[in-house]
Simulated scan of single mutants.
Amino acid sequence: MSGSNPLASKPEDILTSLLERFHSDKVSAMMRVYDPNPILITSDGQTTTTEITARLE
């Protein structure tokens, strides 16, 4: 896999792809794995759909 953390195209590559993204320490790399319209529940119980990547970094 390359340094750009591509999504897996074969079932046997899924774990490697996820681990590379997790170990990259980049929230933006992990966000591509989730739903395109994510919802974040903050520590005070509020929900938000905006600036999720920035809030998690």
Rank of each mutant, 00 (worst) to 15 (best):
R55L: 09
V27A: 03
E20F: 13
E12P: 10
P36A: 09
E20W: 15
T48L: 03
I41D: 09
T16L: 01
R55I: 15
S4E: 12
R32S: 15
M31D: 05
S17I: 11
D25K: 09
T48C: 03
T49M: 05
P38E: 05
I14E: 00
L40A: 11
I39L: 11
S17Q: 01
D13S: 11
T48G: 06
R32F: 14
D44G: 09
D35H: 15
T53L: 09
N37T: 04
E20R: 08
L15E: 03
H23W: 01
Q46W: 10
N37V: 03
Y34T: 04
S28F: 13
S9G: 14
M1T: 07
S9Y: 15
S43M: 06
L19C: 08
A54K: 11
K26W: 10
E57Q: 13
S28D: 05
G3N: 11
K26N: 04
M31P: 14
F22Q: 02
I52C: 15
I52V: 11
A8N: 09
P36V: 12
P38V: 09
D44H: 11
S4P: 11
T48Q: 04
H23F: 05
M1F: 11
T49E: 03
M1L: 08
I52M: 12
M30P: 15
E51C: 14
P6F: 02
I52H: 10
S4R: 13
T53E: 01
M31K: 08
T47Q: 08
E20D: 14
T47R: 05
I41M: 09
Q46R: 12
T48W: 06
R55Y: 14
P11L: 05
K26V: 02
I14F: 06
A29K: 00
E57K: 14
T50R: 13
N5I: 05
T49R: 08
S24D: 00
F22V: 00
R55C: 10
S2I: 14
S24V: 02
M31E: 00
H23I: 01
K10E: 03
N5D: 04
R32V: 11
P11M: 02
F22C: 01
T47D: 04
S43H: 08
T50P: 14
Y34V: 00
A8K: 10
E51L: 06
K26R: 05
E51F: 11
S9L: 02
E57V: 12
V33S: 06
L15K: 06
A54E: 09
